[in-house]
Design a protein around this nucleic acid. Structure first.
Lengths: 112, 112
DNA sequence: TTGAGTACTTACCAAAAGGTGCATACTTGT
DNA sequence: ACAAGTATGCACCTTTTGGTAAGTACTCAA
């Protein structure tokens, strides 16, 4: 749980798993709404945990890409059923979530 | 991801899945190291998300138990591979983690 | 010379998450 | 009378997480 917890980590794993080695800029555009700081941060953590590999081509202008390690691949596999669950039950889950979001703003409910 | 994120939620799901309807006190002792406040809080969220069902027997002294809804069961299923992954790669992952925990305290590394 | 693109880093800030300790209302055991 | 067990609630605080805005060193195009 510790390794995947991070607002954007599952999404990062998803994109890197899909596209093979992925450049930083591509990830940045793919993930959308993530800031540089956080994206870098999560990539560093994934790298430190041995899930992704960072390759620096030492070119100028800079070129770097990220790919999954074998460990990362196995994790991506293990996440598939969860991803499927999310997709299948998205409607069900986000419906109750939407309801909550409504009354959460103005006080407690009175569901007797 | 939103539904399972919470320091103790996976563990709660695990215990409730294992033992069938589980009383609050049992959970409390099973999960260990969780505070009342947080345990209750996570249970309420799981309930609000439709994953667990709370049954209050209206007795005195109070008796309440928690069980999985069908949705909760399906989620527990989807978590199995991830759990397995965690178990299988625990050594690998926690080794790098331990190393990091060491130098993280005294400054950056210089892995050239 | 200005602007855009590359892959980051840093300082600062806000929100979320989790933890501690105390309170409740009632019963059972000593 | 007093402590312990039952399932919570509340006020307060710390830690963790994520976000914003700016800066870096360098190249290419206008």
């Amino acid at each position: 749980m510790r390794v995947v917890s991070g607002k954007w980590k599952p999404l990062i794993l998803y994109f890197v798993a899909q596209g093979g080695p992925t450049r930083y800029g591509e990830l940045r555009r793919a993930v959308r709404d993530v800031s540089d700081k956080v994206l870098i941060q999560q990539l560093k953590e994934l790298e430190a945990d041995g899930l992704v590999k960072r390759t620096d081509y030492k070119e100028v202008p800079p070129r770097v890409d990220y790919s999954l390690t074998p460990l990362g691949h196995s994790l991506a596999q293990a996440l598939v059923p969860l991803c499927t669950w999310g997709t299948e039950h998205m409607a069900e889950v986000s419906r109750v979530f939407a309801e909550r979001a409504t009354w959460t703003r103005r006080g407690r409910q009175s569901t007797g």
